[in-house]
Computed example of a mutant assay.
Amino acid sequence: MVDLVLSGVLALAVGGCTCVVWAERGGPRWVRRVATVTLAAGELVRRAERRRRRSVTRTTSGGD
């Protein structure tokens, strides 16, 4: 079951990356929408990782 979920996530990631490349080359409107969603999701993941790193650094350094 876990393999199926991970395969689905991988397929979505590869499809999203493909749409980003295709949109850069002037693909159809739906491809540009998928590329926008993919890039926004990537930005959300990056922000969450930065926040997590900051909170880990604060906890390990003893607070303020």
Rank of each mutant, 00 (worst) to 15 (best):
A11N: 10
G62S: 03
A13E: 07
V21L: 13
T36M: 08
L10D: 12
R33H: 10
E49V: 15
L4P: 04
A13F: 08
G8P: 00
A13Q: 08
G27R: 01
V31P: 03
W30L: 00
A48Q: 04
A13M: 08
A11C: 15
G16E: 03
L39N: 11
V14G: 08
A23Y: 01
L39R: 12
P28K: 06
T60R: 09
T57W: 15
S7L: 12
R25A: 10
W22E: 14
R46V: 10
R46Y: 06
T59A: 15
L10N: 13
G42R: 03
G15H: 01
R54N: 04
S61R: 14
A13K: 06
V34C: 08
R51I: 02
R25T: 06
R58K: 09
V56A: 10
G8D: 05
V31C: 13
R51L: 05
T18N: 05
T18V: 12
G63Q: 00
S55C: 03
V20K: 12
R58L: 12
R51P: 00
C17L: 14
R46M: 13
T36H: 12
G27F: 05
A48Y: 06
E24W: 08
R33A: 14
G42T: 07
G26H: 05
V31K: 07
L4W: 12
R53M: 10
V21H: 09
L44E: 07
R52N: 02
G16L: 00
V37L: 12
T60Q: 14
V5T: 07
A48N: 04
R32K: 13
R52V: 00
G27Q: 03
L44S: 13
A23M: 05
A13S: 11
V37C: 08
T18A: 14
G62Q: 01
V2M: 14
D64N: 11
P28M: 03
V34Y: 03
R47Y: 07
R29K: 03
A23N: 05
T18M: 11
G63P: 02
V37H: 04
L4K: 14
V14N: 06
R58W: 07
V21P: 06
D64E: 14
W30C: 02
R50E: 13
R50P: 05
R46I: 11
D3G: 14
R58C: 02
G16P: 00
T59P: 05
A40D: 03
C19I: 02
V37K: 07
T18I: 12
R58V: 04
R53P: 04
V2F: 12
C19S: 15
